[in-house]
Amino acid sequence: MAEQQETRERWGMVVDLDLCTGCNACVTACAMENNIPWVGEEEAGYGRNMFWIRVQRTWEGEYPEVSPAYQPVMCQQCGRAPCEPVCPVFATVHSEEEQINLQVYNRCIGTRYCANNCPYTARSFNWYDYTYQIPAPMNYYLNPNVTVRRRGVMEKCTFCVQRIRAGQEQAKAAGRTLQDGEVIPACAQACPADAIIFGDLSDPESRVSKAARSQRGTTLLEELGTQPKVTYLKGGGYYGG
């Protein structure tokens, strides 16, 4: 069977903060998809949660005009990622193919340099064998498409690369190219407000490209020159109304 012509996607994400309600469904969805272990109350108190995506809540103003701002933050899949050059064993590498940052678990030796260098604190470290402590039969729901990480390994959001691969594979097997919206990460799939849009930024007509061009668009800490692939659309009713 003839393979389709190689296409090169540039995966990106847009988070509409005006639609985001802060409900944390994305956090749970991500955990259930990516075999992310829970760490328990005490470990969570030490800040050792394994979230690949977290919803940051900040307060603005004074009572009674005080208002929360919610922002889901995951790995921004930087074009020039600060985590990559500091890894001594090349476990944190850039994917030329998918234009995302990869974490190769079997290479990682747990120096945690990458986490220290990440301006978004998007990386989490397996301080213990959290996943292997899941009591049977609860381990039955672990996703076979995602590696179960061991102690001493760094991990982070992958843009659900297993879903990207599965989508590409499916399209190839059917002899066609990927359609916009065919690959969705778990967070965007679950988001009840549909505030997370995922897709191919190299296609100007894709939903994510159109959303990323919005006037409300901004990227996190862009002054660092990290070239993030995640665009946030400002909320709070600063427009229209």
Binding site: E6, E96, E97, L102, V104, Y105, T147, T158, R165
Partner: peptide
């Protein structure tokens, strides 16, 4: 050779 980028990508097999 044009397939090498894809075929040598870490995320081809490791995720």
């Amino acid at each position: 050779p044009e397939k090498w980028t894809r075929l040598s990508d870490c995320s081809l097999c490791h995720y």
